[in-house]
Design a protein around this nucleic acid. Structure first.
Lengths: 247, 247
DNA sequence: TTTGTTATATTTGTCAGACAAATCATACAC
DNA sequence: GTGTATGATTTGTCTGACAAATATAACAAA
């Protein structure tokens, strides 16, 4: 009996009400714009106090699932899928492994959009990228200023024309910066090493592949561009607490 | 003045308190495991009623940012990044365009993990995939049963060793099924057309490329595997309300 | 009849206080 | 020193209340 008690996590009334509300939306086939019964009715229907119901509603409101205007009632909304991610993606709270997973996620996604990019690429895109590359400032160790680095990659995401992907890029961006900065001592030597071997890939190189419509070349160049991160991931996953510059 | 009033969206006290709490965590450099002041203290410190504070806390609790056990107080937690996405990803509520964007996201990511897959691939993985392919049932039009389709792709994600990516796959899965089912009348003819042209790529084909360690072959095969979806996306983005089987 | 104004009613947002259940801490008995 | 009982504290829940905003109805005027 006691073991059971320990294993059961506290499921509060609010949690149950939240779930019941989600079920309610689904079972009644509600669509964005449809209105929702008022608080008192819901509270009575669910057999809970208004305060409990309001806590559950507050959660859904934060997710963007419902919107309420005083006196006019509540309506169901189409939420921003990634909106709630913004709140939890706080690099200072997330652990090292999670941060690396997120960055790995981003690298994988950016490799994956290569196809989409070539599918949608227009001359206008090339001109905009050209402008970004021209204005960009690059240091000797192939590090870009945060702004030009962001602009270039953001434009790549934009070319996909997929809003979810673009939203993701926006959310992920601060994590990238944080990780880059946190593991600066690991990444910079790798870049220097690559530079000595002449294996550096600049934004300009990437743009050239795009201009030539060279898909495979572009893909390989992107892979090279991400080498420092991949090295970092394997380093951290291998569990070496102290990260060595050379794996 | 009135225009201002119209443009300002309702920002409730709860919204402000939620933000202040997030700021509080950040400014005080709190890490997972650190404890948080009790409700009364926070309410007094923020100058709001306990009910308002509790609504804000309830939101953060849902996100997995904090955990509270009665009497023992609240502690900061490392949230599951994608946990909150689960709640809003309800295919019945999301619009057509969003659903397609999500599926496009998934396709891009799956193309992107090709590199990671080959990087981590072991004989054990190949054996497990072999088992899945052998047990899998495939219909004449290259449609797999939902279970074998899921198992195969889930295993691919698993090979990446990136938990965030795996979590994403799990969340996205119902959306994939929903979209596949919703646009069945578009996808099935495409598959038949591809079959007639002998351009079908089966799970077994993909596995063979993995066995041969043929990265480019695998990638191209994956691209072919996703042709029906890409056709679907362009169809929908082009705005033709009535989706034609042949673009 | 139509239109503009006012008053009422309703609904959400916020507050205050209360109690039960759980559990930590202390005091006490052995 | 150890086990037990009592009290205190904290969260979860309930109830009731009020202010602000606004939809609705009633009413007046053209």
């Amino acid at each position: 009996m006691k073991n059971l008690k320990i294993s059961t996590r506290q499921v509060t009334l609010v949690d149950q009400v939240e779930e019941k509300l989600l079920d309610f939306f689904q079972n009644n086939d509600l669509h964005p714009g449809d209105s929702i019964p008022k608080e008192q009715e819901l509270a009575v229907a669910l057999g809970v106090a208004r305060s409990v119901l309001r806590e559950a509603l507050s959660r859904l409101r934060m997710l963007g699932l419902i919107e309420t205007r005083p006196r006019r009632g509540m309506i169901l909304c189409e939420p921003s899928i990634l909106g709630s991610m913004k709140k939890v993606i706080n690099p200072r709270i997330l652990g090292e492994e999670t941060l690396c997973n997120i960055l790995g996620f981003r690298v994988a996604l950016e490799m994956g959009i290569c196809g989409l990019i070539f599918q949608n690429l227009t001359q206008k895109h090339l001109d905009e990228l050209e402008d970004i590359v021209t204005r960009g400032v690059v240091f000797e160790n192939n590090e870009y200023t945060p702004v030009s680095e962001y602009e270039f990659h953001a434009k790549l995401y934009e070319i996909t024309g997929n809003k979810s992907i673009m939203e993701f890029q926006e959310i992920i961006h601060p994590v990238s910066n944080f990780v880059k900065n946190k593991f600066k001592d690991f990444i910079e030597p790798v870049n220097k090493e690559l530079a000595q071997q002449g294996r550096v890939v600049t934004h300009k190189d990437l743009l050239d592949y795009l201009k030539k419509r060279d898909r495979d070349g572009f893909r390989k160049a992107m892979e090279s561009h991400f080498i420092p991160y991949n090295r970092l991931f394997t380093s951290i996953i291998n569990g070496s607490q102290e990260i060595e510059p050379n794996s």
